[in-house]
Design a protein around this nucleic acid. Structure first.
Length: 262
DNA sequence: ATGGTCGTCGCACGA
């Protein structure tokens, strides 16, 4: 059965309920994974999404920061969460579909501004979070699994607007890319978006600080869709809905879509 | 080389 999934860092699900609803109405993915909901679960506007057909929800929230949710048209079971790096943050939740596919929704720590764990605790926490992800997937190799989310790393040269200029900028430093690769290798994950769109610059995030984000186009691909080795061949038709970055009161991220024949 | 903008919570802090 083919299904389409999208992942979107929404930067407050309460403030942006209107554009989440717009996405659900206009694009109608079977599943939408949200990050940075910035809300306890019981204050998320889930009734609005249920009215649009997304009555199945698996979520973790906290006041003000982080928070992840999986909105689904299809029945989905809560499959738990992990607290990597011992941060006590709502950064992961998993759901299991009736066909057995497990969906992991992650919001990896951004890591602060200085790419040095001696000078910036947040950067160390980001690397530790990724190391814990690696160890977890090494211990139990994912099967029939999809991992999505804001991983806060743009791994490839063509995932950023200027590779050389960003080598010392958090999200594109070699040590982060190395940790990112270690998570992929440990789980046997494949990058679905790049399997579908192998060539060319590809971004999912544009800073709020740029005057004209569209014309300047100084983007980064921070949001990812991965598939476990056994189902990677089922994935196709990836796209990034760049237009959503220009919607009213936008998130600084655009949604990333992938379709699977499973 | 620097500052630029958001959201939350209620003044810095995180992104």
């Amino acid at each position: 059965m083919p299904f389409t999934l999208a992942t979107w860092n929404i930067n407050s699900v309460r403030l942006r309920e209107p554009i989440v609803s717009k996405l659900l109405t206009e694009e109608g993915p079977d599943i939408l994974c949200l990050q940075e909901c910035k809300s306890p679960v019981d204050l998320m506007p889930l009734e609005k999404f249920a009215e649009l057909g997304y009555g199945h929800v698996v979520a973790r929230g906290q006041k003000g920061y982080n928070g992840v949710a999986i909105l689904s048209k299809l029945p989905i079971q809560d499959a738990g969460d992990m607290d990597f790096a011992g941060l006590g943050h709502a950064r992961h939740v998993a759901g299991r579909l009736e066909n057995g596919v497990v969906i992991h929704n992650f919001y990896v720590p951004a890591g602060g501004d200085i790419p040095d764990r001696e000078k910036n605790e947040k950067f160390g926490q980001k690397l530790d979070y990724l190391s814990d992800m690696r160890d977890w997937f090494r211990g139990s190799r994912p099967e029939k699994a999809i991992l999505v989310g804001d991983l806060n790393i743009a791994p490839r040269e063509d995932d950023v607007w200027n590779h050389k200029q960003l080598l010392k900028i958090v999200s594109h430093t070699p040590v982060e890319v190395e940790h990112f690769g270690a998570v992929m290798d440990a789980g046997g994950w494949s990058d679905v978006t790049r399997a579908d769109i192998p060539q060319g610059l590809l971004y999912s995030w544009w800073s709020y600080r740029a005057k004209d984000w569209d014309a300047a186009d100084k983007g980064r691909r921070l949001d990812h869709v991965w598939a476990s080795a056994d189902i990677k061949a089922a994935a196709h038709s990836s796209r990034i809905l760049r237009g959503a970055r220009g919607w009213e009161k936008p998130s600084d991220h655009a949604p990333v879509f992938a379709t699977f024949d499973l």
